[in-house]
């Protein structure tokens, strides 16, 4: 098993493209190392991307924020301006695992692990985040909702990896929120996750919204019907009920050790509504 820690994007791409067996990108390692220990994966090559500057930086870009794929959750939490701009994304990233896991886990890893229950992914999708991919044929941008196709299945081409994410500029009176359901208070994988991003006008009417649900389908969902259900409303009771119904209608979950189908569908509606209320509250006060 080889280990390489290139210092440039090109270097990483070259290694990944030239690999003749299973090559894995190592960011925080909080999923990869567990899978290696459990013999789920036995990579021939590990490419550690943490020594690449672009993967480790949080910078402003055209009024938005660019976040390196290997920035840890703990670092995001300590980034006050980012937290101010995208509280939902940061709180979602901070729900991945324990404090210890926060010290390592990254947005890039959370997405590329390919789990529909990844906490940060619904928040990124609700935020309209775009992933920057680098590969043998150069770089390209892909909306986050298009990166993951199904469990452990990504839209990445051979030799490609995620370098960073771009969060768009924040319009005034807009905010996001993320909630997940777990049986304990910490340490569990999301049974349901809901990310909501909202913009309101001066009168408090929702002008734009994105709603994303995790752990209720083979991939994280961007639920346009749920957004439509609240655009034009002030998130009154009826709008909340429409939102919850649309969220529930979008779910296609499995029954498993973490929750029943019925439970996931019910709770998806509850969380979408609760997350929207938090986002609304935040948006109004900006």
């Amino acid at each position: 098993m080889r280990y390489e820690a290139p210092e440039s994007v090109q270097g990483a791409v070259a290694l990944l493209a030239a690999a003749n067996g299973d090559a894995r990108v190592l960011a925080g390692g909080t999923d990869l190392l567990v899978q290696m220990r459990a013999d789920v994966v036995e990579p021939e090559l590990i490419v550690d991307i943490k020594r690449i500057r672009e993967t480790r930086a949080v910078t402003q870009e055209n009024g938005g924020w660019r976040i390196g794929a290997a920035v840890t959750g703990a670092e995001l939490k300590e980034h006050a301006p980012l937290k101010q701009a995208w509280p939902g994304v940061v709180e979602a990233a901070n729900l991945i695992g324990s404090t210890q896991v926060q010290g390592r886990a990254t947005l890039g890893g959370n997405l590329c692990n390919g789990s529909p229950a990844a906490d940060s992914v619904p928040a990124l999708i609700a935020a309209g985040a775009v992933a920057k991919l680098a590969g043998p044929h150069g770089q390209r941008d892909l909306p986050v909702e298009d990166v993951m196709l199904g469990p452990r299945t990504l839209a990445l081409r051979p030799g490609e990896f995620v370098v960073s994410f771009l969060l768009p500029p924040r319009p005034p009176r807009s905010a996001d929120a993320y909630l997940r359901f777990i049986p304990r208070t910490e340490m569990d994988i999301a049974v349901v996750g809901a990310g909501v991003s909202i913009a309101v006008d001066g009168a408090g009417t929702i002008t734009a919204a994105r709603v994303s649900l995790g752990a209720v389908a083979p991939r994280v969902l961007l639920v346009a019907e749920a957004a439509q259900a609240i655009i034009g409303s002030r998130l009154d009771d009826a709008a909340q009920e429409r939102l919850a119904a649309a969220a529930r209608a979008a779910c296609r979950p499995i029954d498993d050790k973490r929750g029943t189908t019925e439970f996931r569908v019910d709770v998806a509606g509850v969380l979408a509504r609760r997350a929207a209320l938090i986002a609304m509250d935040r948006a109004r006060t900006r």
Partner: peptide
Amino acid sequence: LQNAGFLDYRMPVASD
């Protein structure tokens, strides 16, 4: 056994 690990066996943590 489907939950042979601390993750899905779910013993109480300090915040519980």
